Simulated scan of single mutants.
Amino acid sequence: MEMVSGRKNLDTSRSEESIHLITLLEEKVKNGQLVDLIDKNSIDMQAQEQDVIRMMKLAMWCLQIDCKRRPKMSEVVKVLEGPMDAERNIDHNFVAKNQVNFGIAANATSSAAPLASHLSGPR
């Protein structure tokens, strides 16, 4: 999202409601204004608007609070290569703000070694 928007994730020089890029992403996607996040100073980003929005949707899929809803790396590669689209049923709450969301994040089993199929699958 930093590359697409041309800004840092945390930018204290901005207004309070747009300091955090991911919080701003939540607001823009809920209001149907994803285009507003595309870097206005990048001619390439502006010219490739549809591809940029596709990458933003992939980023949102990867930002799911519930790690079980995030894509596998093999799925990310497929989306980047083109034969697959990002998941459409995305929870657009990317920042844990309440106990329920913190509970989802706390239930992640990061101490167990991941299965090879979770790291990557066949293309």
Rank of each mutant, 00 (worst) to 15 (best):
T23S: 13
K68W: 14
P83Y: 13
G32A: 14
H118I: 00
M60W: 03
G121C: 13
I65Q: 03
V4H: 05
M3W: 15
S5I: 01
P114L: 11
V77Q: 10
I19C: 02
A86D: 14
F94W: 10
K78A: 04
Q46Y: 10
N31A: 07
Q99A: 15
K78S: 01
K78W: 13
M1T: 15
Q48V: 15
E26F: 06
L24S: 01
N93Q: 05
L25K: 04
S13I: 11
Q99C: 14
A96R: 09
N98W: 05
H118K: 14
D66G: 00
I65A: 01
G6I: 01
Q50H: 07
P71Q: 03
K40C: 08
R7K: 05
V79M: 06
S110D: 11
R54T: 10
L115D: 02
I38M: 08
R69D: 00
M45P: 15
T109I: 14
A86N: 11
V95F: 09
I43G: 09
L63Q: 03
L119T: 14
V95S: 00
V95H: 13
A113H: 08
Q48D: 15
E17M: 14
S15E: 15
A96F: 02
I19Q: 09
S120P: 04
N98S: 02
M56T: 01
